[in-house]
Each structure stands twice: as structure tokens, then as C-alpha cells.
Design a protein around this nucleic acid. Structure first.
Lengths: 345, 345
DNA sequence: CTGAAAGCGCTTACAG
DNA sequence: CTGAAAGCGCTTACAG
């Protein structure tokens, strides 16, 4: 491996000067710069990042902690995060926890070990107090996740309003018995979506039936299983709201397996707006989260913190959007013409 | 930030000893070890990885270069890669190129800069010769991708045989006019799948119609568009083989939009076996690639190279599998009972 | 079993 | 504009 000193010798300068040229310092004469650049080229010199990291006390790397990289929701957020990181000369270390608390802690420790300069948490199983403590001593931004009552930098949507809107969409279509498939209730955004569902029913004076609220785990299978339970209730719900799209698709499967039709017999609405929504039949109506944008903004926020800039806003709430497709029978809607429609292609 | 020297002082030993304790060196007395461990705990000391990296000339990090993290095929491979890396104390740096040659080169350069210890290429746009050169001077493994004629460490399936088997599945079901949607022909595995398709037709003495071979780009949309073209051919093909599942699903959409049915009017078979296959209707018959296993083996291979171990096999070919579901009318098949069926749940 | 010393390859304040 | 020197915080051969 070629070292800087060898380049320096060939260019008849000191290593300091080589370093200056490579870091684009203005304090180098054009002539010297050229000589150094030639030597660099000739020797195919690549600076040793390990050394420069130590000296600068920064690896220009950020760890992104998420529960499952194969989940299209998170991979899209990750893409936004990575794009901004790259544009700013940062790298992303993958922190796939598989929902393991231990792994989550291990990845967080990478910041303490100065292996990475900052931390994005797109999942957070650890206790609130710990998150708060960490966020006070090192650069951290929560993406999607958030912590109530604390002032931790966060980028997310308003899950309560979004879930309320989804539920009201069904109510406006005339549904009174609406099943709700929650996400894991240990996760705050699952609890928020449940809140929104409850608010919508209350607002429209529809009684809440506990039998129509069941906890899923965000998997297709759990959506399927819970829908099967709903269909065994007498009478079954005429509509179902699932806390994410995978569970909604699972619910649709269950309805079809029972020989019923979506949306005619049961309307279905999901949450997130992943690509799958337009690939199933009927296409899934859902609440779109600006996944890529969440990633963008979360990384921009983190880089600001790393650079020591002050944050104007520490909590960013991005807009969600009801995307009306086919799974709730949107034809009815067209007549009212009251709700925004946005059929993605 | 607490440094090692402070721990050493508190424990009344030298930094050397602290280092030995932390690296589990056997040359430390139990008594000393305890004293050091206590000091570490008391001061909440975390060793600075930037320094240790430089000293050891290793970051225990590997970069995984892939074209698109939101693609479920690659994210599953990545999961396998990451699991093995983590088990071995390694980290994964994300190298999402978005198919950009420049980014690909940038990520590869991270190995030259010693920022990472090794490289997994799950996409490879750069020239063969360059890949060969790189693989000779640093640890590299190709996953899925491969280079003909060179002895570069590789883990993949046999794409020719797999595509031949998919095509023969259709032929065995009685189809004679089989459309083929290729992947981008700049990618070797796309060309191999085309080869397999051709071989199958030749083997069964079915004439090859160039109009029934069209190049897609692995997207749902390209599958849709090409299928629309096929349906405009007179007479249209009775079956279609798409080089990946997304394009197959796009083709299914096109068929349905034309008011035709899958598999009754046109049979469809895909490639890869991503989760989507069981979520569309009818469920998609496809060739399953062992994605996770490819990741596992590729990373195991890479770590061996990094550790300087000799590779027994430099080219690993894993088994693919025909997964018969509903999109080719598998009922016909059951009578013959000749083909392995493997309906995933 | 333990410590003093050297050194990993850069970068950067300092001096000129 | 340029160079000599110090130092980032570890690890590890060497000596005892």
C-alpha cells in the first residue's frame, strides 16, 4: 500500500503539503499542486481513511437502526437517508436489529465507541429515558418512531390524525361496523393509530366494540388470521382498517378465501402505501406516508446536529395523504367528491 | 470522552494492561483483570474504535454494493450477508448504487482506502477486467453476479438451467408459443436466462420467434408494457416467462386489463420467488433462488478471504427450485405428477 | 504477568 | 506558500 510519504518524496514536498493538496487547501501553489497530483496519480495513491478518521476523530459514517431491512417501508426510508448521507460525503452503516433489543443496544454503542458519528433510530425498543440520555450526549434523530413528552429530534407523520382520517373515510362511505387491526401495541405509533381510530368512531357517535379491535404484528399472516376472526363475529364488520398495508393485504386474502368480495362485502383500508398496494386486486386504498421524505429530512437533521448547527425545529411532522384506490369502493365517493384522491401509478 | 489512560490510572496499571484485559488476553492475572473491569465500568469507558482500527489496520467492516435496497430480492440477500457478518463481529456498510457506475466505483474505492476490509458485489457494471484486477488485490466476492471465464470468488445459481426448467415447465403444460421477457441484457444473468429459454425451445423443437423475446428492465411497468405488446401479436403467446417476479406480475396485470385470465388464457411464470408471489392472484409460479443462503455463503466466503484462509471452492452454485403455484394452471400438472411442487405459505 | 516504548498514517497548529 | 513536529488513542512486540 502506497503511503503519503512516498508521494511526498516523488513530488519533492513534505507530507503536509500532500495532505493539503488532497484536502483542497487553498494554501498551496498551483505548481506544487500539479506536481503532487501527478505523483498521486502515478503511484495510484489512496489516502488511508483509518488514519484520517483517527486524526479527525470522525468516520463520516452514520448508523441507521431499523427492525427489518426486507420491509419495504423501512427500505424506502433508508434510501432517503442514504441519499442525503452520500450527498454530504457520509456513509451509512446498516443496523438491522431484527427486533432484538440487544442488537439495538449494540448498534447504539457504535456511536459511543466513536465508530460512527451519529445515529438514526427507525425503531426504538429501548426505554424512553435511555433514548433521552443518548440524544443528549450524541447526535441522534428518531425517524417514524417518537417519544412522548421529550424533546428528542424527530421526523414522523401525525399518526393519530392519519388513522382518524382513514377511519372517517370508511365512515363516510357508510360503514358503521369497522374492524381495526392494530400494530404491535408496544410501539407508540401503533397506539397512536388506535387512538385515531377511536377518535373517529367517537366523533361520529359509533359505539366502539372491543371485539373489533385486534392486535397484529404487521405481517401479512397476522392480518389474515385476525380477519378470519372478524369474519367469525356475528354479524361481521363491513369494513376493516389495518395499521399497515401488509396486514391489509392479509385481510383481503382472508375475505376472498371466505368467498366474499372486496370491497363489496368488506371494504379494506391500509396504511403506509408500499408498492404492493397497486399490485393486489383490488388495489389497496391506504394512507400514504412520505417514506423517502422522512428519510431525507431525518438525515438532514442528523447532519446538522453532527455539524453542531442549531435546529430550528426539533420535531418535524410531515403530511400524510389518503390515497383512494379500489379496496373501499371509491365509486361511491366520486359522487360526493369531497375527499382528495390520488391514484398513484 | 474517557480514555484508556484514565482507566489505567484508576486501576493502577498501565494502558497496555487495560488493553489486554479488554481484548481478553490470557496474560493478565485474575486480580488485575477485576480491578481493570471495575474501573472500566465506573468510568463507563468505551474504547475508541477509530484508534483501534488504525492500529489494527482493519475496521471489521465490509461494503455491500447492490443496485437498489428497496428491491426485495437484494434486501433478502443483504439480510443473509449481514447476519453472517454480525456473527463474526463485522459490520456492513451500505453501498446502494442506484445502478450508477460512478457510485459503484466510489464504493469499491472504499476498500482501496482501507475504510472497509472487503467487498461484496451484488451488482457489477464495471468492466470484467477491472473486477478481476480488484479481486486479485483485495477481498471480493460476487453474489448473484458473475464473470465468465475468470476465476473470481462467486456465489450464484445456475441461471441457464433454471430458465430452461421454467420454460420446460410451460412446454410440458402444452404451450408452444411462449413469450419471454428478459432482464436488461447488459447483465450477464439476464443473458443466461435468455440462453436457458432458447435451449428449452430447441430441445423441444419449438421454433424461436424473435417477436416473442423482448427486453425488460426488471420493473413491474416494463413487464406490463411488454405483455401489452405480446398481446398485440397475432396470435398472442399462450404463455409468458418473465426474468423476474416483478415483471411477471406486471404481465399478469396487462393480461387482466385486456380482459383475459391467468392462467386460462395466458400462463405466467416468474423468477426469484419474492414475497409478492403469494400475494397476487393467481399466486405466481416461479423459480425460487435461495436469496438468504446466497448472502450467507457469499459473506462466509468473503470472511475467509479476509482472514487469509484458502478457499476450497471459489465458485459456489446453489440449487434453485421450481415453485409451482397457480399462475400456470398447475392442476394439469398434478395428473402428470412429474414435477416437484413446493407451495410456500 | 506487567510496563515502557514505538508506531499505525494521517492532519494541523505553529513557525518561518 | 511550505515544512518539522506533535499527536489522534489505541495495540503489540520487546524486555523484564
Amino acid at each position: 500500500m502506497v503511503k503519503m510519504i512516498e508521494v511526498a518524496k516523488l513530488a519533492r514536498v513534505s507530507p503536509s503539503t500532500v495532505s493539503r493538496v488532497l484536502s483542497n487547501s487553498p494554501y498551496v501553489s498551483e505548481e506544487t499542486r500539479q506536481r503532487v497530483l501527478e505523483a498521486v496519480k502515478l503511484l495510484e495513491y489512496k489516502p488511508n481513511r483509518l488514519a484520517s478518521n483517527l486524526r479527525k476523530m470522525s468516520s463520516k459514517t452514520v448508523v441507521v437502526v431499523l427492525p427489518d431491512i426486507t420491509n419495504p417501508f423501512f427500505s424506502k426510508i433508508l434510501q432517503g437517508l442514504e441519499d442525503v448521507a452520500r450527498e454530504n460525503g457520509y456513509h451509512v452503516l446498516l443496523g438491522d436489529t431484527g427486533n432484538s433489543l440487544k442488537l439495538e443496544k449494540d448498534f447504539i454503542d457504535l456511536v459511543r465507541e466513536r465508530f460512527v458519528d451519529g445515529l438514526i433510530l427507525a425503531t426504538a425498543r429501548i426505554r424512553k429515558e435511555e433514548i433521552l440520555a443518548i440524544s443528549q450526549e450524541m447526535p441522534v434523530v428518531l425517524a417514524c418512531e417518537y417519544v412522548e413528552g421529550y424533546d428528542i429530534p424527530t421526523v414522523s407523520i401525525d399518526n393519530i390524525s392519519a388513522a382518524r382520517q382513514a377511519t372517517e373515510h370508511l365512515i363516510n362511505l357508510g360503514h358503521q361496523r369497522i374492524g381495526f387491526i392494530t400494530g404491535p401495541l408496544g410501539v407508540i405509533l401503533s397506539r397512536d393509530r388506535l387512538k385515531g381510530y377511536r377518535q373517529a368512531l367517537l366523533l361520529h357517535e359509533i359505539p366502539i366494540e372491543e371485539a373489533l379491535i385486534q392486535e397484529g404484528d404487521f405481517s401479512v399472516k397476522s392480518g389474515y388470521d385476525i380477519m378470519m376472526k372478524f369474519l367469525a363475529v356475528n354479524p361481521p364488520p363491513t369494513a376493516v382498517f389495518a395499521s399497515n398495508d401488509e396486514m391489509a393485504v392479509g385481510a383481503m386474502k382472508a375475505i376472498k378465501h371466505k368467498g366474499m368480495r372486496v370491497p363489496d362485502d368488506v371494504a379494506v383500508i391500509g396504511f403506509d402505501d408500499i408498492p404492493l398496494c397497486t399490485l393486489v386486486e383490488p388495489e389497496l386504498t391506504t394512507i400514504a406516508q412520505p417514506k423517502y421524505e422522512i428519510g431525507i429530512q431525518a438525515m438532514e437533521m442528523l447532519l446538522k446536529i453532527i455539524k453542531g448547527e442549531m435546529l430550528v425545529k426539533r420535531q418535524i411532522v410531515l403530511a400524510h395523504q389518503l390515497v383512494v384506490r379500489e379496496s373501499c369502493g371509491y365509486n361511491l365517493y366520486r359522487q360526493g367528491g369531497e375527499v382528495e384522491t390520488n391514484i398513484h401509478t
